[in-house]
Design a protein around this nucleic acid. Structure first.
Lengths: 226, 226
DNA sequence: GTCATGAATTGACCCGCATCAAACAACTTC
DNA sequence: GAAGTTGTTTGATGCGGGTCAATTCATGAC
């Protein structure tokens, strides 16, 4: 891990991230005050569950996996964050202890914002507070979605859902490239890699073609009723 | 369902709820401005998933179950809220559509606060914004906990966890009364009622005694390493 | 080109829990 | 009290998916 200052292009990425985009420029700049940047190899740990921490992390490039550890060492993914997404907001507004482990899933660059500064700005600037509220609500909803999917859907259904969520509305057939290894996708969906593989092969019968990271679907209807 | 105005004791319950307790009195009073109260029978639906809504609900008494519906009609509980807990905050700060169904799990009384007013106050009063942020972060963490439990723990482990979460630290043996039907507990833990029953009977071998709604534990150690 | 390493797939097996059905217990309601 | 209603437990069975092991595929090093 190397620590650096913010370059201009880092700033540009940050300012175009969902959270900052809705803020007035001055507020966004104020938050970035004092931010640092670091680069990480795949499998680097950014922070550990229950560690005291007062940083919010923004992914600038690469991929960060957020997961909890079971007593037996098994891992359960809570979220997978890519460029522009924020991590650790909950902790900063609760007890300043990480709620999960964070680990780079591929070579990654992240920015660290000071939690103290964020709290202070949230108190002074209602735009910031508003943006944070929306962000956290959105995170909450994502997690709810995940929980509901886990409880209601089988593996092929979850995968079908994931594929459909990448399909522009209206198009009947289309294709896209997985944004990360199947490995990671499996974790995100709460599956073992083998189960993901089997799910794909089940979906083949419904017109899903998988070649490496490329996914192609030929019959949207069939997917939806899965 | 009957709609009423706030009584004095309703006010008292609200003001002592976690969310309001940390607010200055005037801010709390301002939020309660325009609140209404309604009573519900068991199984009454308070709102439905995807329904447009702009209310935040506070449970005054009874129990409200929050769940998503699968295509096949199966239900997945997202949360179970008791006295003093708030529901629907996410929706009010996102797209004003309910993210789940809400249903009274027993005869219940709830207060409805206007989402518009809440948004307005959050923008004007940083105390309110702060309290909301903490509330939503807390909700988010609860949901994360739930997701991680689902993925990492077996049924008996989840039940053991639940019991331990009601056990005052340090005490080696103790007993308490379930705050709701086993039915509801099963849903909250993501189990079928039968599975909960079997989990209890497994835990009997570790010193857990179940009589109706009363739970008694004799050996905390045994529970913890389950 | 060969070789080495890690990812993805496939098969075999097993465990956990949902489901269905039926017995039982605990409350209502009259 | 009796009888109906609703919640809980127990048993039998089947499916989903986790785990382990072996193979195939992809990628990069040399």
């Amino acid at each position: 891990m190397k620590t650096l200052r913010l370059t201009m292009s880092d700033r540009a990425i940050l300012l175009s991230a969902r959270f900052f985009a809705r803020l007035p420029r001055t507020a966004a700049e104020a938050i970035l005050e004092g931010a640092t940047v670091s680069t990480h190899e795949a499998h680097d740990t950014l922070f550990r569950q229950d560690d005291p921490t007062d940083d919010v992390i923004v992914v600038l490039s690469g991929l960060v996996r957020l997961f909890r550890l079971g007593k037996d060492g098994r891992e359960a993914d809570i979220a997978v964050s890519q460029k522009g997404e924020m991590i650790g907001v909950n902790a900063v507004f609760l007890d300043r202890r990480a709620t999960a482990n964070a680990q780079a899933a591929e070579p990654s660059i992240v920015a660290r914002l000071e939690g103290g500064k964020l709290r202070q700005l949230a108190a002074e600037d209602s735009d910031v507070a508003q943006a944070l509220l929306e962000l956290v609500c959105h995170h909450g909803k994502m997690t709810e979605d995940c929980l509901a999917e886990d409880r209601l859907l089988t593996a092929p259904q979850r995968v079908a859902n994931y594929i459909l969520s990448h399909c522009p509305i209206g198009s009947e057939s289309f294709s896209f490239r997985l944004p990360f290894q199947k490995n990671v996708l499996a974790g995100k969906l709460g599956l073992a890699p083998e189960a993901l593989s089997r799910a794909f092969s089940t979906l083949r019968r419904s017109g899903v073609i998988v070649k490496g990271r490329m996914i192609e679907i030929r019959d949207r209807q069939a997917l939806e009723q899965f």
